[in-house]
Simulated assay, not measured.
Amino acid sequence: MTVQMTRRDWSLITREALRRRIYQTAAVILLSYCYTGASQEFVRTVTVDALLGHDVVLPCHLEPPVDATTQTVEWARENLLPKIVHLRRNEMELLEEENPQYAGRTSLFTGKLKTGNLSLLLRNTELNDSGIYTCQALGLNPNQVSSVDLRISSVFVPVVRTLKVDMNMRKVILGCQTEGWSPEAKLSWLDDKGNVLATQMSFLAANGFHSINSNIIRDSGDVAKVTCRVSTRQGSQSRESSTFLPDVVLPSRVNDDVIISLLVIFVIVLAIGVAVFGTLWQKEKKRAALLTKAPPRNTAEDLETLKSRNP
Rank of each mutant, 00 (worst) to 15 (best):
S153N: 11
S153I: 06
S153T: 11
S154P: 06
V155M: 15
V155S: 14
V155L: 15
F156S: 12
F156T: 14
F156K: 14
F156M: 09
F156C: 07
V157H: 07
V157T: 11
P158M: 11
P158R: 11
P158K: 01
V159T: 13
V159W: 13
V160H: 03
V160L: 13
R161Q: 15
R161P: 04
T162A: 03
T162H: 12
L163N: 06
K164E: 15
K164L: 08
K164V: 08
V165A: 01
V165H: 05
V165T: 10
D166E: 08
D166T: 03
D166V: 01
D166C: 09
D166A: 06
M167P: 05
M167E: 13
M167Q: 12
N168K: 14
N168F: 13
N168W: 10
M169S: 08
M169I: 00
M169P: 00
R170Y: 04
K171A: 00
K171L: 08
V172L: 10
V172Q: 02
I173T: 10
I173N: 06
I173Q: 10
L174S: 04
G175H: 02
C176G: 13
C176P: 00
C176T: 01
C176R: 02
C176L: 04
C176V: 00
Q177T: 03
Q177K: 04
Q177I: 02
Q177R: 02
T178F: 02
T178S: 14
E179K: 04
E179M: 08
G180H: 09
G180Y: 04
G180L: 09
W181Q: 07
W181Y: 01
S182F: 10
P183Q: 06
P183R: 08
P183E: 09
P183F: 11
P183K: 05
E184R: 12
E184H: 04
E184K: 14
A185C: 14
A185M: 08
K186R: 15
L187E: 15
L190Q: 06
L190C: 02
D192F: 03
D192C: 06
D192R: 05
D192E: 07
D192K: 00
K193E: 11
K193D: 06
G194I: 00
N195L: 01
N195D: 03
N195M: 02
N195Q: 06
V196R: 08
V196M: 00
V196E: 13
V196Y: 01
V196C: 01
L197H: 03
L197D: 14
L197A: 04
A198P: 01
A198E: 14
A198N: 12
A198R: 09
A198D: 15
T199Q: 11
T199D: 04
Q200D: 12
M201Y: 05
S202M: 02
S202A: 13
S202H: 00
F203D: 09
F203E: 13
F203C: 03
F203S: 12
F203R: 13
F203L: 04
A205C: 07
A205G: 07
A206Q: 15
N207M: 07
G208W: 07
F209S: 10
F209D: 10
H210S: 05
H210V: 01
H210C: 10
H210T: 06
H210M: 03
H210P: 01
H210L: 00
S211R: 14
S211F: 06
I212H: 07
I212S: 10
I212D: 12
